[in-house]
Simulated assay, not measured.
Amino acid sequence: MDYLSSLKVKGLVIGPLHVNPKDDQARTNLREVDSTLGTLAEFRDVLQAAKKKSLKVILDLTPNYRSESPWFGQPMDQNYDLQEKMKEAIEFWLKEGVSGIQVGSVESLNDTQILDSWKNLTEQYADDHARVLIAVTRKQDAPGIFSLLNETAGVDVLTSEYLAGLAKSDQDDAKKGETASQMIKNYIRAAGDKWAGWSLARTSSGYLDAFRGEQLLRLYHMLLYTLPGTPFTDYGDEIGLRDLPGQPAASSAIRMQWDNSANFGFSKEAQQAGSQATSNVTVQVRFKPGVPLPISVHFSEV
C-alpha cells in the first residue's frame, strides 16, 4: 500500500478471489475467499490498509473466472439462481467495505437489466463514499464496443481491449501513431457523454513493455493518463515487467517482481521449481522514491 500510494494510485482492482471450482456453479461461493488465496480476515486487513492510504479497493466478482465461460455457459436471463447469488454477493462485499464491483465478459450478459439491478445495489451503499460498477468486455472491434456502450449505460465505466490491436500491428511507427490517433478520436466521439475507460495491456494481450519498449514507458503512461476518462494499467506495467519468452500473459501467470529474492519477493514460500525471472526489472531496481510515475489507477489480478 505504501508503494501504490507513492505512485499516486487512487484505486486498485483485486481478484477474483472467491471459491470457484471450474465450471461448477453449485460449489461456487461468491462470498467466500478461496483458501489458497487467503482468508476473509486477511482481505479485511487489505481494506483497512488501503483506507489508511485513501486508496479505493474494487473487487472483481466475475463468477466462473477459472473458465473461458465466466457465466457458466448459460443464458444469464434464465439463470435465476446465479442472478440471486450475484446480488447477495455484491451486497455482502459492499457491506465489507469495498468501493465497487467489477465484472468481466459483459458481452455475454444477454439482459442489460441485470447490470441495472447491480448498479442499483452499488448506489444504495454510497454512504461514506461513492461505490462504482465497472464492466469489462473482451471485445476489440469498434462497432461491438460502441454498441455495448449504449447497452451498458447503467455502469460507471466500461473498459475494453479496444487499443490492444495496436500491439500486434506491423505498421511502422508513424503509421501506427496515425492509426492510434484516429481510433482514440472515434472512441471519444462514440462515447459521447458517457465516461470512457482506457486500457491496453490486459492479460490477453501481454504486458505493456512487450510492445511499447522500455524507453517509451513513461511517455506511454503520460499519454494514456491524459485521455478523457479512467485509465487502467496492469500490475508491473509501471516498471516495465515483461512476459515470459514466447508466452503471452494469457497463458502464464506472471508474478509481480518486487526484488531479486526467492519468488521475487512476491511470497515467503519456498521458490517453486522452474521459477525464473521474466527480466531483471524489479520494483527495487526500477522504482526511485520521490520520483512517482504518472499512474492514477492500478489494475491487479490474483
Rank of each mutant, 00 (worst) to 15 (best):
R189Y: 05
S296Q: 14
L216M: 06
L109F: 06
D2K: 14
Y225D: 10
K56P: 00
S267G: 06
P16F: 06
F232M: 08
D81P: 00
S67C: 08
V98A: 03
A167Y: 09
S252M: 10
K119S: 13
D172F: 12
N20C: 15
L158C: 02
W258K: 02
L55Q: 04
S205P: 00
T39H: 04
L55E: 02
L200S: 05
L208P: 03
A41I: 08
D34E: 13
R242M: 12
N29D: 15
Q48W: 07
M1A: 11
M222H: 09
Q182F: 09
T122Q: 04
W71A: 03
I14N: 00
V46H: 08
N64W: 05
V106Q: 01
A142R: 07
I101C: 06
L293F: 12
K185D: 08
R27C: 04
A49D: 09
D24W: 07
Q102G: 07
A191P: 05
A180K: 11
S147D: 13
Y80T: 11
V302R: 07
V157H: 02
K176Y: 04
T179N: 04
W93C: 06
Q272V: 12
V9I: 14
L244P: 02
G154Q: 12
T122H: 03
A49P: 00
T230Q: 10
E123Y: 03
K139A: 04
L149C: 05
